[in-house]
Amino acid sequence: MSTVVHPTPAPPADWRASCAPGHGRTSFAFLDEGAKREIRRRMLKAVAIPGCQVPFGSREMPIARGWGTGGLQLTLALIGPEDVLKVIDQGADDSVNAVSIRRFVTRVTGVRTTTDTPAATLIQTRHRVPEEPLRPHQILVFQVPIPEPLRLVEPSEVETRRMHAEADYSRMWLYLYEDIVTYGEITIGARYPVLVNRRHLMDPSPIPRWDVARLNRNPALMLFCAGREKRIYALPPHTLVEPLEFEDFGFRTESFAGRRCMHCGSTQSFLDEIIAEAAGRRRYACSDSAFCQKTRKAGGGLTHRPADGGRTP
């Protein structure tokens, strides 16, 4: 009989002492236990129906709606003293919003944090999948602004619910088709709609197309949450995730052909374009700051599988 060991690394020795009472009136991980239980029940349902948007009673958080309150509520309902947390925004650990969220979570939990992707047990992210491959015990939590992929073609929630119920995604296909007729190309940049488990159309959050292929059959659990829109959805490990595409108009990732990171020299990562001077000269740098640092330390030698799944010619 196979025995699976749930990884439980030891908590830091001082975690309980560092939670001394009297500093405030807030419970461990901010949310009251009733709120956590509700979010936990919804998370389990979301995992059981991959890609299906599960409503939940989103709580008000001390950060603004639209700034990651959904991701934050999942993180707080998930986190325990053993966790090692990484928070990124646009791929960077030191973006102001990532700093603000990390500071809040450590303040209400006392957990250890890291910028090193493989060292984290729990990663909260906005708009990126880390460049380094994820591992089975890791959980990636996405902040989601608009959870409904069909919002592009239909504003009414009643109507989009019906479309999901009937797996009627014809209007999305039509949108893509008309895009091709008008522009000769599918013009969706980030937030590219994907079909999950051959059943539910899902908004992958505003990640670049570069990251979409990495959702497919990823060994880690991925959880998505929109606090303002009050929806949770999930991709269990090894779930089939396919971007919508036509046979003669395939899905394409962003192209950085001929570009490399100005810091680490990587040609294998998603690059931010930087307007360096008033003259408007462009330079490029890794969006994933932790990957970039690691590549520099390794002398540019860090390799990983291509992020685009080999789709770019």
Binding site: W67, Q90, N97, H127, P206, P208, E254, L271, S287
Partner: peptide
């Protein structure tokens, strides 16, 4: 908030 990644994708 920064939208560098999404904007890069649109660009």
């Amino acid at each position: 908030l920064p939208h560098y990644v999404t904007f890069q994708s649109d660009l």
